[in-house]
């Protein structure tokens, strides 16, 4: 069984800022702001929550080519990873998904409240329209360290699954 590194999974489940990159058939990029992600069990797959208000052009792009780039980064420390892979499932977020998504939002609000001397208003995080959302799962093929510094851009030791 191929597994994502446990420390990175733990990080992914924390209050990180998350972004999505996809591209269309003409190689034009598109950007989205994700509202949480999770890696379920010993697996090489990550699922993330894309609010439906942001779903286009990403769903069209993913239907065209399936390619996902996703980052997760911590605001204070700048620790940051990029995950790349191919989509394997797209579904309307379930009630269980929504619970994880809302927990992520609350963790992120609490993080900013506690970590910054002058905390950003809760509206900074809480103002994003989250409902309804789509849950997108992709199989991770590559992980990159994107923390600023000498190791920025270096791949993380990770053996992806075949196929």
């Amino acid at each position: 069984m191929v597994m994502l590194p446990s420390d990175i999974v733990e990080f992914l489940h924390g209050p990180q800022i998350m972004a999505l990159g996809t591209r269309d058939a003409t190689l034009r990029p598109a950007m989205g702001r994700l509202l949480g992600a999770f890696a379920e069990g010993p697996t090489d797959r990550i699922s993330f929550f894309l609010p439906n208000v942001q779903s286009e052009p990403h769903l069209t792009n993913l239907a065209d080519n399936g390619l996902v780039a996703m980052t997760a980064g911590e605001a204070r420390t700048h620790r940051n990873y990029q995950f790349k892979g191919r989509v394997v499932a797209v579904r309307a977020s379930t009630a269980a998904d929504a619970a994880i998504r809302d927990l992520y939002r609350d963790k992120l609000i609490r993080y900013f409240r506690e970590e910054y001397f002058m905390p950003l208003p809760d509206e900074f995080i809480g103002g994003y329209i989250s409902e309804p959302s789509t849950t997108i799962t992709f199989r991770v093929a590559k992980i990159f360290n994107q923390t600023p510094g000498p190791n920025a851009g270096k791949p993380i030791d990770f053996v992806p699954a075949e196929g």
Partner: peptide, 12 residues
């Protein structure tokens, strides 16, 4: 977000 010529997107 950028995209390589081989089609792989990149976000940072």
């Amino acid at each position: 977000v950028t995209c390589a010529l081989d089609g792989e997107p990149n976000v940072t």
